[in-house]
Nucleic acid binder design. Structure first.
Lengths: 114, 114
DNA sequence: TAAGTAAATAAGCATATACTTATATCAGAA
DNA sequence: TTCTGATATAAGTATATGCTTATTTACTTA
């Protein structure tokens, strides 16, 4: 148990990132759907730079992965991350957020990937 | 699923609280041992008010309970909290911090409750 | 290549956070 | 009751955070 303090530090960092309602909801959303930046802008009624900044933080810790598709960049939870098992136990206990995706579809603002 | 957004908000609040290395370590420590303020001061090499303020935040969300015993106030994780199951899944994945208690005992600064 | 759209970055600002020192409170001992 | 030690609260401060608007970058496609 040599790296104990580093692990605690990592855990605290991850929890701090998830301790923001916007980012937490994002993570729950993209656990099963990839979403692009403009969809988040629509969902959270927030400026595009603000969304990009949240995603940047999640990406800096390796929690999400991005994939370009045509003109959009789609983000999803990086399930190959060494931290994913930890994150999954948290996400599993959160209420499903899929109604937000359904709202996009009803709006016609859903952008289908692939 | 009426209270979805409230639940997400609650979860985010809890994660934000746990997203601090000091508080996270405290929680892991007092999941199985009650500790008093002066022990935390010794463990974290931090001022007493700073420790009290961290404990206050944890108490305000109902994550910890306090019990007076003689001149000391002992804190421990409130396992009857409705949020404890959520918190437990997180704490279960953190490295054991009992060596910090052992250090106190070796120092002679451990305060035995009961 | 030029124009257009999506996303990232820069800069600035208001608020939140985590600490400090100083002081108040409160229970137990003398 | 008075003193003492443990803890809580108050006040102040430096840094971090999360947002905004303005601008830049990077693809796509006409």
């Amino acid at each position: 148990m040599i790296n104990t303090s580093i692990e605690m530090e990592r855990a605290a960092l991850i929890l701090k990132l998830l301790g923001d309602k916007t980012r937490l909801t994002m993570m729950k959303l993209i656990e099963n759907h990839a979403c692009c930046v403009c969809e988040f802008v629509e969902i959270f009624k927030m400026s595009q730079p603000s969304i990009s900044q949240h995603l940047r933080k999640l990406k800096d810790l390796g929690l999400v992965e991005e994939e370009r598709n045509s003109q959009w960049t789609f983000y999803s939870v990086d399930k190959s991350s060494e931290y994913y098992p930890f994150i999954k136990t948290i996400l599993d206990q959160l209420p499903n957020q899929d109604e937000k995706i359904r709202e996009l579809e009803e709006n016609g603002t859903r952008i289908e990937c692939c």
